[in-house]
C-alpha cells in the first residue's frame, strides 16, 4: 500500500501538529491550497486504510507524573509465545507489547512489554503480574527503566514528491 503525492503533502503539513484553531482542517486546507472537504475526505480515507492510526494527542508521561516507565523484557519459550503474548498485551497497564528477535549472546529476550506507572514500586507490582501469567514459559526477564527522553518526534516524511 502506498500514498500519492497529495496524501504525502497532507501528512508532511500535519507532522508538526494540527493547528490549535477552531477550524484546523480549513486552516490546513488553506495552507495546502486545497478544498477543506477534499482534505477531510483524504484524511478519512487514510484513516480507513490504516495509514493514519488515529488523529490524537500524545501526552508527556513524565509531565503527568508517570515518572516510572519500564520496558519489561522476557525470554519466553518460542512454542508458547503465540498463546501468551496476547494475554500480556491485553493487560490494561501494558501500552505496547511485541515479539522481537533475540540477539544472542548479548540479548536473550523475545517479548517486550512497556509498563508505565507513578513509581517504580507500582511498575514492579505490574511486572510481577506479568511474571505470574508467563509462569514456567519464561526462563529469564529484566526491566529497563527509562532515565531520560532524548528525542520524541514521531515519523517524519522526507520532503519529496510521489
Amino acid at each position: 500500500m502506498s500514498i500519492d503525492a497529495t496524501d504525502r503533502r497532507i501528512i508532511a503539513a500535519t507532522q508538526a501538529g494540527l493547528p490549535l484553531v477552531p477550524e484546523p482542517y480549513a486552516a490546513l486546507a488553506d495552507a495546502l491550497g486545497m478544498d477543506e472537504a477534499a482534505l477531510c475526505d483524504r484524511l478519512r480515507a487514510m484513516q480507513e486504510r490504516g495509514i493514519i492510526r488515529r488523529i490524537a494527542l500524545a501526552p508527556n508521561h513524565y509531565a503527568l507524573g508517570m515518572v516510572a516507565n519500564g520496558m519489561s523484557v522476557w525470554d519466553v519459550d518460542d512454542a508458547r509465545i503465540a498463546d501468551l503474548g496476547p494475554r500480556i498485551g491485553a493487560l490494561d497497564f501494558v501500552s505496547h507489547c511485541y515479539e522481537r528477535p533475540r540477539a544472542l549472546p548479548e540479548w536473550r529476550y523475545n517479548l517486550f512489554a512497556m509498563i508505565h506507572g507513578a513509581s517504580r514500586d507500582e511498575v514492579e507490582h505490574k511486572r510481577a503480574r506479568i511474571k505470574a501469567i508467563l509462569g514456567d514459559a519464561c526462563r529469564a526477564d529484566d526491566i529497563l527503566y527509562s532515565t531520560r527522553i532524548l528525542k520524541k518526534t514521531g515519523l517524519r516524511l522526507r520532503q519529496k514528491e510521489g
Binding site: S2, I11, G50, I51, I52, A58, P59, K152, G154, L155
Partner: peptide
C-alpha cells in the same frame, strides 16, 4: 508547558510501505 508531546495524525509507517525498528 510540554505536557502535550504531539497532537495530530499518528502514522503507521508499515501501512505506507515503510518500516519501524527498535
Amino acid at each position: 508547558a510540554r505536557i502535550l508531546t504531539r497532537f495530530g495524525p499518528f502514522l503507521d509507517a508499515e501501512a505506507m510501505g515503510g518500516a519501524f525498528c527498535l
